Simulated scan of single mutants.
Amino acid sequence: MGNSSHTATRLGIDWWLLFPLAVLTGLGLIMVLSASGVMAEKFWNTPYHFITRQSLFAGLGLCIMLATSRLSPSCLHALHYPLLAGSLVLLALTLLPVVAVKAGGASRWINLGFFSLQPLEVAKVALVFYLAYFFSRKQDRIKTFRIGFVPPFMTTGIMCALLLVQPDFGGAMFLVMILFLFCLVGGTRFSYLAISSIMALGLATVLVMTSPYRFRRWFAFLDPFKDAQDSGYQLVQSLYGFGAGGWLGVGLGAGRQKLFFLPEAHNDFILAVLGEELGFVGVSLVIVLMGIILWRCVVIALNQKDMQDRFLAFGAGLIIILGAILNMAVVLAVAPPKGVAFPFLSYGGSNMLTSFFCMGILLNLSRRGSRAR
């Protein structure tokens, strides 16, 4: 593995990281075109509305990735507080009706004119940068309650509170998972983690039980076929898509679930369309590609000499891999619906740009790590 890792980066380019990225992005563009063409034709009078926008986001994401991959270590290390402050401002702006975009009863986007920005995606990156800085600088006091426990939990708590007001329960849970995994590898006392986890589960239970909408979604997840025409409709249609795909799928473009059976098929449930049209083989290809990215993230993190860089590689990979795992869990009815996009596959500018930014960080650290060896 060491020789292959060195070969992959011998020219300063991590080909093992770029290859799955290129395949996933290309496959994502194809699936967005396939999944959104009918809807785009009906509402925008052209089947190419969504694929045109997604292609532009992919091109802009590529530029962001290339720029990020060339940043100096000092620039990367200096981003934690500006990103944190910026994300808090953006999350607060979603509460202002003047700039917020409301959809499905939630204000999770900010209207920028040419597209709607989802501050959650900025918050993920900001939290990773902050936690990477915090755990690398406070290692000597990470076991203490006042220094090692309170600051990261308070910072994450403020971000989660702003998300819950939108409301975005799934987004808040995503940030909590990032914090928990950072604490797990960063050395936080297990007793603090255990107590805070119990409290978080208790709070989550209260939020679910006191919200009719979340309550219905939870029971729809437990038995989606019990209310297949209402709360369980999306999950049932997703499972129908996977079931119809079989081993090789019904053929690219020939799927039926995207014909207004599966709502917003080109967004969070695009994997169900892929499973129907490309079958088990197509879904397996996506999982293998994500596995390669996971392997490279681990190798890149372990190759870093600087502790902050090591945590940064861990966090950047975590955003991509955790997003993929949660999305797969939702569309396969293993977890309650959370509105988590699949990196590089799902339609959406904010997630696409964030994913490319994270890949730029990994490419940056991969190049420096290979030089250090």
Rank of each mutant, 00 (worst) to 15 (best):
M1E: 05
S4N: 09
H6I: 06
T7K: 07
A8C: 05
T9V: 03
I13R: 12
D14S: 13
W15V: 14
A22Y: 05
A22C: 14
G28T: 14
G37K: 11
A40Q: 00
W44C: 05
N45F: 11
P47R: 09
S55M: 08
S55Y: 00
A58N: 09
G59A: 15
L62H: 01
A67Q: 00
S74G: 04
C75K: 07
H77M: 00
L83D: 10
L93T: 05
R108G: 12
L112C: 07
Q118Y: 04
P119W: 02
A126S: 13
L127F: 06
Y130P: 11
L131H: 06
A132T: 10
A132R: 04
Y133S: 12
R137F: 07
G148V: 03
F153H: 15
L163T: 09
L164A: 09
Q166Y: 08
P167V: 06
F180Y: 15
T188V: 15
M199K: 02
M199Y: 01
T210H: 12
R217K: 05
A220V: 03
D223H: 09
F242W: 06
F242A: 04
G243R: 00
G249A: 14
K258S: 09
L262H: 02
A265P: 15
D268E: 15
L271P: 04
S284I: 02
L294G: 10
V298H: 10
L302H: 11
N303S: 15
Q308N: 07
Q308P: 03
G317Q: 08
L318C: 11
I319K: 00
I321E: 08
V330H: 08
V330W: 01
V331I: 09
A335W: 10
S346Y: 08
Y347V: 01
R368Y: 09
S370N: 13
S370F: 08
